[in-house]
Design a binder for these strands. Sequence first.
DNA 1: CTGAAAGCGCTAACAA
DNA 2: TTGTTAGCGCTTTCAG
Lengths: 352, 352
Amino acid sequence: MAIVCQKLPDACQHGLVPAPRRRATITSVAEAAGVATSTVSRAFSNPGRVNHVTREHVLAVAERLGYSPNPTAQALESGRTNTVALVVPDITNPYFSGVVKGAERAAAEARLTLVIGDAQENPVHEERLVRRLGAAVDGFVLTASRMPDEALQRASELNRIVLVNRASPGLTSVVADFASGTGQIVAHLASHGHRSFVFLGGPAESWSGARRWAGLHAAAAEHGLEATRFGPYTPTTASGPAAADAVLTTRATAVVAHNDVLAIGVLQRLAERGVRVPEQLSVVGFDDVFGADFCHPPLTTLAERTTEAGARAVEALAALTRPGATPTGEDAPVRVLPTQLVVRASSGPAPT
Amino acid sequence: MAIVCQKLPDACQHGLVPAPRRRATITSVAEAAGVATSTVSRAFSNPGRVNHVTREHVLAVAERLGYSPNPTAQALESGRTNTVALVVPDITNPYFSGVVKGAERAAAEARLTLVIGDAQENPVHEERLVRRLGAAVDGFVLTASRMPDEALQRASELNRIVLVNRASPGLTSVVADFASGTGQIVAHLASHGHRSFVFLGGPAESWSGARRWAGLHAAAAEHGLEATRFGPYTPTTASGPAAADAVLTTRATAVVAHNDVLAIGVLQRLAERGVRVPEQLSVVGFDDVFGADFCHPPLTTLAERTTEAGARAVEALAALTRPGATPTGEDAPVRVLPTQLVVRASSGPAPT
DNA sequence: CTGAAAGCGCTAACAA
DNA sequence: TTGTTAGCGCTTTCAG
């Protein structure tokens, strides 16, 4: 059995690799159609340079054989795959849904295939993903990348990269306006008479986490509020209890969480412990994710334009892959998207 | 400038395609190391058949040059990419998060790269995705596929396919035990004195939706309940108002929604209209997604082992891709995973 | 243990 | 307009 498998181009490899059926190749189509492979190739990717009736014929034969060009081979030749990868830290975090949706829409418009990779909140895994996928895609959108700047620089030498909610020297990026957003949050709290708040920090590597804290800190100083930072916490509801309990050791009247998922976990814990929100403690999140509007009480949170961010990032990436595009450089644009505070029932006047 | 670009293997293509930098190839490594390309190849993928010190040397040179094998080229030769695709109808639906997580874990264990595709609730888009990615991956896990059986059969001739929450003749699949699950739901309602309920159906093409209704219908007959089906509704919270309003035209004392997201939308609408849950109306969902435990009131729902489903599916796919695997056939296994009713506050005694 | 050479499926000169 | 030919980067016989 195995002995037969030597170099018989077609019959072979079947018993070994259970590839369902051998796909038709450009060669088989060319033979069946009685033309050269290059004609078949042109029929598909260069319609202008082939006789109309020849083309029809080739296409008909191809259809009959169920042929469609092998993207792997096309990619090997051209170096382009028309595929871009979107990498997110944790695909189960609903925050990234919007980014994914926007990226998909933009990819479809640019006739690009989008694949999504999950970095699993792990810089090492993220870097490996980029290495692994590097030659198989035309570029990456790295969302809230946890990779250190050096790693990003290294990766950007081999790959086209666009960042979302992360900035790094020389790299194109799309970020939310955290400066304004954190200002809105602090103004909201100040207007309600709060004098101090606790910030529940997210992962240490999180660039946006750092921006959030920096913004809150600055705005707090401006408004004469006292701001304290706790954490880091893994941004999941599971971190809620520890975070909430930590807050309750202080006399802060408000708490701002790294993101909504963490805030919701905090809310759950506070309910468990009989702390009334917002009467005793105001809670504010970031992201306005699915769930923020129906948790109890509904969460005040800073909404970002995540869909737009995903779309803009893919568009920028598509532009980078087009011939004649300027590679990254000093002038790498940072696009800032507005943010908006959505006030719901989880925040209110400070207790007197 | 462009004139220079003729066939100079290296200098070319730079001005045209702004690929950040030319990646090192097996040839450049071979030259730099003073060995043949085949030796480099073996150093990487056949460590046994190369002298230990030669191998070290090659690896060192490769490292210095930043070389890593081009998966596209490897794939072209071997037909294997060590990449599998997971396709979901809508990645923003939190239900699929568990499947993704499980698939990721299993893929990592099998040393496979996982890419995720979003079919956007569209059978046509789903089929196109399979076509597009077909040659670039070793196989597919199609989750809750909306493709008709014929399309699946066709696709399975060219690709290795494993289904999750969908069955189709001859295809391997992993499904939740809806028969038991729907029985649990109906028993729960019956034990609380409900005499009739409405089922809010999901997309018409949804296989699991059909199973859910079939199970509910059968169990209702068994318990002497009256079951009515409404819909189809798009399974998003946005469909909640229409669905809830429809239910309120009936005298049903309970409503079972196609999934949690829809159920949450219903809950929101009921609150808006002043209908008390569960005093006036019990609400039950499917999936136990993120949010089901903190919506108001917390949702009674049928929990599936989504993580396990994702993992099992990828394992099955990995097994299919291993040499010697039996291609699909009559005996294609259908693996049934248990389901469990999670009773929360959204369901209770029928109003008297 | 290592090298030479063929070829995976496709595209892009170049000729005809 | 079409065919011929030479690779893209890699793996894999087959010799040495």
